[in-house]
Design a protein around this nucleic acid. Structure first.
Length: 262
DNA sequence: TGTGATGTTGAATG
DNA sequence: GCATTCAACATCAC
């Protein structure tokens, strides 16, 4: 479940489990999600290292090592972390695990293998190469307006583009469009600066709420469009129309016909 | 049995 | 070089 708020939760979990820990050894069951080296080379690079901190940018979580390098943890669609002590508590989908010197084990699980794990000598160079945009919580209005103005793509397509803003995914973008009564397939170029400013404000508001209330923000289901009632044909709880499904930017998209006119 | 899934990417095209 | 679109990735669960 990884969009920005979920990765924020992963960071909190990771920090509590791993900061200050030394890696006694890595256990690797399947190295297909390790994208820039083989499993044995990855394990060798990490053995003996200490974890000193972590940095989250959008959906990317960089685990910092005591040699100045980083391990990038990107959770894909189904990535997860699992801290345990006994081998029998290993998750069914664990792909590799950090074995710390104090006996704790931090497993990285991923059923669908869309996660991306990279050993990075230069985090900033990687971010630049990827053209990864600013984290949604660090977004500045002027930057956002300049990046968005005149784009020919859809509103949803632009908000999913991690080089404009890092952190939004399919669910939160639908949520944002619903809240602002904007159609996800609206052309960005057709939106006014005033509308783009509303989008900006809503991005910051939603991500701030979710992270400040982490990990309990899901206890506020009424805050989230997708959480409680997202099914085609249902009525908008605010009485403005019927839920419809369409493909936008290649993703299944839910919106309320009438409430979100094109 | 078929279908779709909270994401990214490389290739193709404009 | 940039912007945009889209199939492909691999597996599981309903």
């Amino acid at each position: 479940m990884p969009e920005l708020p979920e990765v924020h939760n992963f960071k909190q979990y990771f920090d509590a489990a791993a900061i200050g820990q030394q890696i006694a050894r890595m256990e690797i069951h399947d190295d297909r999600i390790i994208r820039n080296m083989s499993g044995p080379v990855f394990a060798d690079a990490l053995k003996g290292r200490k974890i000193t901190g972590s940095i989250r940018r959008g959906k990317y979580l960089f685990a910092q090592l005591d040699n100045g390098h980083d391990v990038l943890l990107h959770f894909g669609m189904t990535g997860d972390l699992n801290l345990y002590q006994e081998p029998e508590d290993r998750g069914r989908f664990e792909k590799f695990a950090f074995h710390f010197t104090d006996g704790n084990i931090l497993g990285f699980e991923d059923s669908r293998l869309f996660a991306r794990i990279l050993y990075l000598e230069d985090r900033e160079a990687y971010i630049a190469e990827k053209k990864l945009g600013p984290d949604a919580l660090d977004l500045e209005l002027e930057y956002f307006l300049e990046k968005m103005r005149g784009r020919k793509t859809t509103l949803k397509g632009a908000l999913l583009n991690q080089s404009i803003v890092a952190g939004l995914g399919n669910l939160y973008v639908d949520d944002l469009c619903y809240k602002l009564r904007l159609h996800p397939a609206a052309r960005v170029a057709d939106l006014t600066d005033e509308q783009l400013t509303q989008v900006y404000d809503k991005i910051v508001e939603m991500m701030t709420f979710a992270t400040e209330n982490a990990p309990y923000y899901r206890d506020y289901p009424d805050e989230w469009f997708w959480h409680t009632w997202r099914k085609e044909g249902e009525q908008d709880p605010e009485g403005e129309g019927e839920v419809k499904i369409m493909k936008v930017a290649g993703r299944t998209t839910y919106y309320v016909e009438g409430r979100q006119p094109l």
